[in-house]
Structure formats: C-alpha cells, structure tokens
Design a protein around this nucleic acid. Structure first.
Lengths: 232, 232
DNA sequence: CTTTCGACGTGACTAATATCAAGGAAGCAC
DNA sequence: GTGCTTCCTTGATATTAGTCACGTCGAAAG
C-alpha cells in the first residue's frame, strides 16, 4: 500500500478515536485492492476472511435463493461491509460484487477481531457501526413488509432527492435493473411504476429523473421518519 | 427489586464478563416491572428511554405505516430489545406490546450509555448482541424478498421443529394472526397455506401442528443455512 | 457502416396475495 | 345455560406483482 493511501485509510470513520498504533497494525496487514466491474468480492456461505471497506466505486450486496436473487444494498466509498460476520467469526450472509471498477481495503478478520478484543474505542466504534447498520436493515424490512412497490419507488425518489440537496432532479446512480432488485421488484414493474408516476410530475429520461411536484409525491408516498430518514 | 430477582438479572448474557460493580450500578437504577397482556411497552418514534430485557412472557415487536401493521419479531425471556436505539440515543424504530403477561427489566438508557462508554467488556457484549441482531434482521429481509408465503411458512415450521428437538410435533407459541403478520402475510393466507401443506403431511389442529413427512417439507421449502439456521 | 448485444419499455397473460363477506368454534361474562 | 366476542376458516373477488414475448434504442465491436 502506498504511504499516501495509508494516510487516507487512517482517517476512516471506523478508526475514529482508536489507538493509532493499533490502526497502523491493522492496516499493515491489510490489502488495498483494485477490482474490475462485475467481479465477485464475497460469496454468501463462505467464512468471513476479511473486513471490506470501500475506498472507491460502488459495490452491490446481494443474496440468492433457488433461482432468485435480490440486491440487499448498493454501497459507495466509505462504507464497510460484513462487519458482523467478521466480529462473530461466522459465514457471510450475502454476496458482494463490484458494480463499477472499485478499490477496496481488505483487513484480515483475525486482525479485526484482535483489535476488537483489545481496544475499547475500536469495540465501541464497531458497536456504533453495527447499531447503525442494524437500524438500516430494520427500516428496509419495514419498507418491504409495509409498502407497495409504487410506494417504495416514490419514497426512494424522495430520499434520493433529499440526499442530493432537493434539486428536483436526480440521476440514477446505477442501472435500473439493479434499482428494481434493490427495491424488491422485477425490472418490468419498475418501468411501469415510473410510468405510473407521470401523473405525479415525474419525468424519466434515461438515467435522469425530474421531479415536477414534490408535494404530490409526498401525498402518494407518505414518507415516514422511522423508515426513510437516514438520520433517525 | 427483590434481592433474589437481582441475582437472576446479574446472570443475564448481556452482562457476561462485565465489571460486577457496573452491573450492580445499572441494576440499581433499573425497574423490574410487570405488564399485563396487550399493554404497549414502547412506541415507534419516541426517544429511547430504556433498554428492555424480557424476564418472563412474550413480547411482540411491530411497526405501522398508514393503516397497515406488521410484526417484526416475537421475543421471549432473555431477549433484550431496542439496544441499537439506546446506544445511538435515537428514536425507537418499532413499537412493542406484551403478548402475554410479562416481566420486563427496564434499564435507563442513560445508564446503559454510561456503561457502554466506560466499560470495555460491556461495549463488546453490546457489539456482539448487535451483530447477532443485525444478522437476524438480514436473514428476515432475505426471507421476505426471496421467498413466497408458502415457503416462508414451511421453513418456519422446520425451524420451529428443529428448535424443539425435531419431535415432528410443534405447538404454535402464539395466535395464528400474529404468526401470519410475523411471516408477512394476512391471516387468511396463513390459513390457506396450512391447508396447502396438507398434501405434504402437515396436520393442524388448533395450536398444534403435526409434521408427517419432514423430507417432503424440505423438498418444498429448500431450507438454507444463511436464512434459516439461527447459529449461522 | 454494419452487426451484435444488452438494457429498457410495453402489452398480454398468469400467479400470488389481499380484501370482503359470511359462518363456525372456542372462550368468557353474566 | 345465553349471549357476547374474538379467532379462525373458507369462498368469491379484486389488486398487485411476476412472466413471457417482442420491439426499440444505443453502445461497442468488427
């Protein structure tokens, strides 16, 4: 790993307040690896060998059952994944693949567990990370169990718009079929849902979505802090 | 709290390896409270005032959106809930109600956060708890997104049977409508699903379910470690 | 320039799940 | 006992989501 990259890594939120020597130790045995798009980074069911931290690019986290597959999340730079599996020394519950060319920091699970066992600030940092991740999944579960596909799409649009400054114009950050799977529907249903939102002021052109009337969407989608607000 | 109860509380898994003085301190300001059935223990959206630990009875954790409601989990003795909200000092994401008369240990959030900040073993214990809970929700999300209602029911039966010693005979631990909501379907669909399992050797009589042919169920439901195995 | 391929959209149809309505059975108050 | 109420089941029907087939478009390769 280059010295400059190493300095970047040390500033990761996961390492906030952690004994610098320990961070150094973890990073010394870590790999900063480049992956081309479409490559599999982790496979469901395998033992957790590495804690993954995304440095660049997007990663799709997904899971399969029978002949079906669903994407659980799409993660960007700064996100770490499979923390829980590493801490508990268990199998991955999900697979992951690079959606774009990506740089990922791979920290050996053994080192992470060691730091977790010896360094209190790191253990706390991990706990906070897990608590946040836990709440994220709970929200997603509620989203799935309580809402129709049209409601899920509409709320996703509103969240996305809010995250990019409420400009009334968003760019889809990945393919529509990935978005469909992320939202728990088949691509055809996503297409039709976008079409169904036209009367509510939504105009889709390629990857860009114009929001004509935010309030109409809100009336349709009933956004709720305990599902949609990433800070709640 | 009675001295005898206090000793019981100290043996909770959450307190494993934690400085006894600290545990004592947390318990000193905690309440061991009795709730009659149907009473609400926590309401979605409110700030997390207490960490709840179930001592006796069953608690339903649920969430509502518009005019819909879904149960996220049914917890029994030994389970704690709203750990994540307490640690992060956020709102509850879910409501909870007593399904049966219940005894619940209520530890003030402030005390829990204090212990978390000062005691490393407790922070680790919390992290492990959160990691396990996280994986549980992930499995549930996969269950919902990847399986049909019949598959969910069948796998639930298999898990339940395994948890009670593979006797080929299980007792539903709560009302069918709660089970339906837990499994993400409406009570009518649960009824029909039980009926649809008759050809697979399932015989339902009131709250007891006889499993005639485990292997037929397995062929139908394709149980998978990364969704169904509680230890994976 | 042409070909190929994958992503996307759309129509027609099917399957899965929800809703509505009705009735039976069990528990409980009186 | 009688009369409630709640839970559960079942049938008919509606709504929602998935499948299959096909056409278009645009990017990339040849």
């Amino acid at each position: 790993m280059r010295a400059e990259d190493l300095e970047d890594m040390k500033r990761l939120p996961l390492f906030n307040g952690v004994n610098p020597a320990l961070v150094e130790g973890m990073l010394k045995c870590a790999y900063l690896q480049r992956f081309p798009a479409h490559v599999e980074l982790a496979r469901e069911g395998e033992p957790a060998d590495f804690l993954h931290v995304i440095v660049d690019g997007n990663v799709e986290v997904y899971s399969a059952y029978r002949d079906r597959e669903t994407t659980v999340a799409v993660l960007g730079p700064g996100s770490s994944f499979i923390v829980a599996a590493v801490i508990l020394d268990r199998q991955y519950l999900k697979s992951a693949r690079a959606l774009t060319p990506a740089r990922v920091l791979l920290i050996p699970a053994e080192a992470v567990r060691g730091a977790f066992a010896t360094d209190a600030p790191f253990a706390r940092s991990i706990a906070l990370e897990l608590a946040t991740a836990y709440r994220g999944v709970v929200k997603e579960l509620k989203n799935q169990k309580l809402r129709s596909s049209l409601e899920r799409l509409t709320n996703w649009i509103l969240v996305q718009d809010a995250a990019t400054g409420n400009t009334g114009q968003i760019e889809l950050p990945f393919d529509k079929k990935v978005l469909a799977s992320r939202l728990g529907m088949v691509p055809e249903v996503l297409s039709r849902s976008f079409a169904a939102l036209q009367p509510y002021g939504i105009l889709v052109c390629g990857a860009s979505v114009k929001i004509g009337a935010r309030d109409a969407l809100v009336r349709l989608a009933h956004p709720t802090a305990t599902i949609d607000d990433p800070l709640t």
